[in-house]
């Protein structure tokens, strides 16, 4: 290769490496701001600020959804299979909301550790399958797991 071109190529590579490092350090420093939500472990560890609008995300714990028969109030626990946080919400939930599904709730964490949400969004996972397959999986896992076993993320279809 021509020496001038070689020199230009080196400059281009340095430019790229420099920008990559700069952007990498910036996003690393801002990682907590880039994270869309706190997971229940972070909230349990006290990383999430109290009484500030934040988002909490995780799986809706199996068997934890309690609906108030008089109003639209719903209470459920959001878990990451290590810790869980109690969420209360008044309003209409998205169609995909169900036990064992991922959600992201926006609201405030109060002093008693309750998360008072004013918006609940459903988080879809990367798995797609036809309904028949889902039913078959459900039947298979009902056969192998004891009732009440919430399972790991891979069995929480």
């Amino acid at each position: 290769m021509h020496p001038i071109r070689k020199k230009r190529l080196t400059i281009v590579l340095f430019l790229l490496a420099g920008i990559a490092v700069a952007v990498g350090l910036t996003t690393y420093a801002l990682r907590q701001n880039i994270n869309l939500f706190y997971d229940p472990s972070q909230i349990a560890a006290g990383d999430a600020p109290l009484d500030v609008r934040i988002r909490a995300g995780g799986m809706v714990e199996e068997g934890s959804v309690q609906r108030d028969p008089e109003s639209l109030k719903v209470e459920f626990r959001v878990t990451d299979f290590n810790s869980s946080v109690l969420v209360e919400y008044t309003g209409i939930l998205p169609d995909l909301f169900a036990e064992g599904q991922g959600v992201v709730a926006m609201g405030r964490l109060n002093a008693s550790g309750r998360f008072v949400a004013d918006q609940v969004l459903a988080k879809h996972d990367e798995n797609y399958m036809p309904p028949e397959v889902a039913e078959a999986l459900e039947r298979a896992s009902a056969g192998t797991h004891k009732a009440g076993d919430s399972g790991g993320p891979e069995t929480a279809y």
Binding site: T27, R31, I34, N35, L36, F37, Y38, D39, G57, V104, L121, K123, H124, D125, E126, N127, Y128
Partner: peptide, 10 residues
């Protein structure tokens, strides 16, 4: 890298 609402790659 971060918690997002968008699901990971299928």
């Amino acid at each position: 890298w971060w918690n997002t609402l968008h699901q990971p790659a299928t």
